Simulated scan of single mutants.
Amino acid sequence: MSDLGALLRKAREEHGLSLEDIQETTKIRKRYLEAIESGDHSILPGSFYLRAFVKNYCEAVGLDPDEVLRLYQHEVPAVVAEQNNVEPVAARAPRRVQSRSSERFGRLGFNLLMWLFLILIVVVVWIYFVNQKGDDSKQIDDTKMTDRASQAPASTPDPNSAGGSTTPPPSTPPPAAETTLTFTTKQGKVDHYDVAPANVPHKLEIKVSGGPSWTEVRKGGSTGEKLYSGTIQDGETKSYDITEPLYVNVGRADLTVISVDGIVVNDGDLARSKKVQLNPVKVEDTAGGNAGDAAGGDEGAQQ
């Protein structure tokens, strides 16, 4: 196995990916991926394809492709364009031959094009005037409705009503509870966070900036249903509703910002992978806490 192949295989295994996952992400055949890891480049189509395959492989596992190609240029040489030593021979310009029929058809085509252009101009002008007329009619109707509304008599309070009271103003709705993100535990390499308050919709956003980053999102945990697995390009954002625990695994934490309702999750901001799991607080957990507080208050009152 070559040094380059060992590096790529180690990065793949650190992300918990198989060759089938890399094949699905990069669309490169598995036998080519095995040849790159083993260092057997003889079965690859050529050096150009080798560099392209290595670059896609690096992006899939969160490595910098330019840096990898620079460090292992002895294994992946740059493509050198073949130079032809034969002096170019000036080609003889073909003799232009036109028949009378071709010239006639050329004139007919030109005339037809001119007529079509004139018809297009007439249609555009007609559509413009029709739309202008419709806008004027709508403006007149809006003016009439405004005049009628201004002339309508204002309603007067009924003197026979009790106390002549007026309708009370509508009550102002209570402000929405703010989202809180609490670190609870670390299981293996996964940081667990509680998302509160309960019974409130929350939004997860994964934004990549500065370069591509491989990302995986699963429902329920690291072995749950796969919602997304692939490379998020620079400037792209993925969003998911947090209705149940979501597991997030990013290849480059320094290029990725994970946030919940605008609150940024601390991912270390390092050039390596990061795994977090977001657990929404359940309604029964909140109800249990309130019931415990109420019981404690009753015991204090009895004492």
Rank of each mutant, 00 (worst) to 15 (best):
T180M: 00
L44W: 01
I206F: 07
W126H: 04
S171D: 05
G5Q: 14
W214N: 04
V123N: 11
Y128M: 07
G220H: 14
E82Y: 12
R51E: 13
G39K: 13
I232W: 12
L69A: 04
A196H: 00
G188W: 10
K274C: 13
G289M: 00
D136N: 10
R70I: 04
V248C: 08
K144P: 00
R100A: 10
I206G: 06
V217W: 13
K186H: 12
T166A: 11
V122M: 09
S18C: 12
D261P: 11
G106F: 02
R272A: 02
S18V: 04
A196V: 02
L63N: 07
A253Q: 06
I119A: 08
Y240C: 04
N160H: 14
T182A: 12
A291K: 14
A6P: 01
S102P: 02
Q187V: 09
E284M: 03
W214K: 02
A291E: 10
L7V: 15
L204T: 09
G163I: 09
E299A: 11
A93C: 03
V264Q: 12
V195Q: 08
G163S: 09
S42Q: 10
V265T: 12
V68S: 04
D298C: 00
T143C: 09
G46I: 11
D64V: 07
V283Q: 10
R107E: 08
L4K: 15
G235N: 13
W115C: 03
S18N: 12
K133D: 06
D285P: 00
C58F: 05
R95Q: 14
Y193F: 11
A295V: 06
